[in-house]
Amino acid sequence: MPRLSSLWNLANPTRFLGLADRLLPWLAALAAALLAVGLYLSFFVAPPDYQQGETVRIMFIHVPAAWLGLFMYVMMSASALGTLVWRHPLADVAQKAAAPIGAAFTFVCLVTGSLWGKPMWGTWWVWDARLTSVLVLFLMYLGIMALWRAVDDPGRAARAVAVLTLVGVVNIPIIKFSVDWWSTLHQPAAVFRIDGPTIHPSMLWPLLVMALAFTVLAVALHVAGMRNEILRRRVRSLWLMEAERLDAGAETAAGAAR
């Protein structure tokens, strides 16, 4: 049974591997170039905020990281549907590769949020509704990664994780709503908030470039991660086949020795 499914898996992923090898250098170069431009814009071109001064530049990393933390979860949910409904052989590979990347972006978002909070609020962490929601998202990523690690057989792990991911998707609005409720219940609205729509164009452009750079970076990392996962599974299939071949080999060796 593992033999059959592994052979079936190899057909489509082989084409993906070829594609990945050709795409990756371009994606990596594009991500590097966009990041360079974006960082230049955010650190040297964008003006300091009249209220927050230079610290506002953290936003150019913080906001794209938050966006990608969410985007990778959406990506995982789509892959989870692919695994459960269409049983596409690449879907669970995409799902597995997306988890650590999403967790990493979410973590960057939390760290930059914390760094931003220190000068703004005077403490490293405030249980603000937005930050807290991101923290819960991070915890969900950790749970998903733990489940991947706990099950050895990739096929079984993929279906389990797909169910968990989709349960998570259903819960995200509920969590978001509850956290907002919890936050307003406890907190006076005196806390600083960015005024989203009134952001000045001189800041909007660097932000958009950085968002694009982070997205391309995430795609490049995701393709690389998928390639690694496919190779990892091939090693696994090779090990299984090697173990099956051992018996035949051992008997002839024993015969020769006698």
Partner: peptide, 12 residues
Amino acid sequence: VAVVPFALGPDL
């Protein structure tokens, strides 16, 4: 550590 403040409230 992350969940307990939801029960206690975010009073730093």
